[in-house]
Computed example of a mutant assay.
Amino acid sequence: MTRVHGVVKIHLKDKWTWIYIPWMILLSSFSINFLIAALAAPEAGVKTGGVLSIFIYMMVTGIITMYNTFPFALGMSVRRTDYFKGTFLAALLINALTTVVLLALFLIEEKVIPEWGVSLQFFSLAFLRSFNLLELFGIFFLLLLNMFYAGFAISCLQRRFGRTGMFVFFGGLLAAGSIASYFLTANNGWMTLFGWLAEHYDLLFWWSLPLTLLYMVLSYLMMRRTTV
């Protein structure tokens, strides 16, 4: 466990990647949208998905974490298994804290300073208001963890198979997407798909859990065979 805790400390020392940059991006987006809402007509208001920036950046964190810390950890005689466990604990901690802050901002926007006094919906989006706080915690936390491990798996793929592997993977992903798009268009399935998503959007959040587990398993298997 000492080496696992050592890996956690390695990650937490990089506060810029894990904490400062994502919140700088999010707060910059919030500030811009706040100014737009303040200058716009009150009845118009602003509804924005700017809060998604921190989720997207968490994928970037997953990508660069492997690149920045994996060779250093192995150079310190850390086993791959210990590195994976330590990274998992660090991701749990940071994403749990991020979720708590997001929930606090959600409540401030919803209860304390409704729409920040300028008719701005940034953290408290309309479709999220049907969930209680426990459900919101689960949704935010699972999505953050999902995005992190999606990025981490991509980084493991690149380190394990190189540029050729990345080209084959994303080429295959693009081909699969193109084929699916063709069949949906040919069978007028887009409206059916969007209608189903609109009615069952809550299920999409919980499906991120098995996807996260899949990303974790795949990244671990690839990491075990990577070279530094």
Rank of each mutant, 00 (worst) to 15 (best):
I139N: 04
L102I: 15
F72D: 03
M222N: 05
Q158A: 13
F169E: 11
L107D: 07
K15E: 14
G171Y: 10
S77I: 07
L74M: 15
S77P: 02
V60M: 13
L213V: 01
I108C: 12
G165T: 01
N95K: 07
F205E: 03
Y20F: 09
G162H: 02
L197W: 10
S219A: 15
L211V: 14
L144I: 03
D14A: 11
F137L: 04
L174V: 12
M24D: 02
F183M: 12
P114I: 13
S77K: 11
T65D: 09
A91C: 06
V7H: 01
I139E: 02
L144G: 05
S77Q: 10
I54R: 01
L97K: 10
R3T: 14
L128G: 09
K9D: 12
F170Q: 01
F55Q: 05
A44Q: 15
I154F: 14
A153W: 01
M58E: 09
W207N: 00
F127D: 13
T99C: 03
R224D: 08
F55G: 02
R129P: 14
A176T: 10
L209D: 05
V118Q: 07
S178L: 12
G50F: 04
L92T: 01
M66S: 11
L145S: 03
T81L: 10
L218R: 00
S29V: 13
D14E: 09
R163C: 04
L174W: 04
T226N: 11
T99V: 02
G45N: 08
L157A: 11
L203C: 05
R224H: 10
L143H: 05
G151E: 08
V4F: 09
L193H: 07
G49N: 13
T65W: 00
F148D: 02
T81I: 12
T212P: 00
R79I: 05
G75S: 10
L93T: 07
L209R: 01
A126T: 14
L74Q: 14
S155H: 05
V78S: 04
L174D: 04
L105T: 08
L26W: 07
F84I: 12
G151D: 07
K47V: 09
L93W: 08
L97D: 06
R225H: 15
I56T: 12
G50D: 06
S155P: 07
L213E: 00
A40R: 08
F131I: 02
A37Q: 06
I36V: 15
M216R: 00
M66L: 15
T65K: 00
L92V: 08
S28F: 15
M223N: 07
A41Y: 12
S181W: 10
I179Q: 11
T212N: 02
L12N: 08
F141E: 05
F148Y: 12
V101E: 01
K47S: 13
V46D: 06
L173W: 10
F84N: 07
S155A: 15
V78Q: 03
